[in-house]
């Protein structure tokens, strides 16, 4: 008998919460939806979800999502979390990632992208829990563990990559030497066309995280006007 993954959604807005639940009905998953931190905490301490989708602002509590995750993380250290929020500031993103969030997705989101994101995260969850050998790709000194969503550069782990950055880096690394246009990167990462500057900002963040580990990192090349390419 197949075990249906349990997805917990904590969203204080009733309409959005219902839309998420409705969208997930087409998937073979069990959905638990909560309107506030208190009810979510009470239920989820009794049942560990396979994936937690959290809004950060819950009712009057500005950091309600962060606080809830912080408490649950003590009980479930490996709990996969997707922050789905209107707070898009870099500080919020960094805070979420440092707490252990798997991804940080700004609102608004389309249902299709939402489902794709959930599927991706569930796949990662399954793979990370699997005892089988991980699905890995190597690109020069870069090792990408696709299943466990782990990155290694010169055998040193890279941390605090969002799912967007992880996906963008994977897309580049799978096509070394090939110039990937802004449109291609946007399509691969965001599922559609985005501003060139949005892509560049993410690439800049990726480079910064590499350079924190290796000051001489210079493997992502800007193809001015077109996009970027990975150089081994």
């Amino acid at each position: 008998m197949n075990h249906q993954p349990c997805i917990a959604i904590v969203e204080d807005d009733k309409d959005q919460r219902q839309n998420y639940v409705r969208a997930l009905e087409c998937m073979p998953v069990q959905v638990l939806a909560f309107a506030d931190k208190h009810s979510a905490l009470q239920a989820l301490t009794q049942q560990r979800p396979d994936l937690l989708i959290l809004d950060i602002i819950l009712g009057q509590e500005y950091d309600g999502g962060f606080n809830l995750y912080s408490q649950l993380n003590r009980q479930y250290p490996d709990l996969p979390v997707l922050f789905l929020t209107e707070r898009v500031g870099e500080i919020d993103q960094v805070s979420g990632l440092r707490m252990g969030a798997w991804d940080y997705q700004p609102k608004p989101i389309t249902i299709d992208y939402f489902i794709a994101k959930i599927e991706s995260l569930l796949r990662l969850t399954r793979n990370s829990n699997s005892s089988q050998e991980s699905n890995q790709i190597t690109c020069g000194q870069l090792l990408i563990d696709l299943d466990r969503r782990h990155l290694f550069w010169q055998q040193q782990p890279l941390s605090e990559f969002t799912m967007t950055e992880f996906t963008m880096l994977e897309y580049l690394a799978r096509r070394p030497g090939q110039v990937l246009t802004y449109q291609q990167l946007g399509q691969a990462t965001f599922g559609g066309c985005v501003e060139n500057n949005t892509i560049s900002t993410h690439i800049s963040n990726i480079k910064r995280k590499f350079k924190a580990l290796d000051g001489d990192f210079n493997n992502i090349i800007s193809e001015y006007g077109q996009g970027y390419r990975w150089r081994n």
Partner: peptide, 9 residues
């Protein structure tokens, strides 16, 4: 986001 998800559904 409400509109977007509603339209999606």
């Amino acid at each position: 986001n409400t509109i977007s998800t509603s339209l999606g559904n």
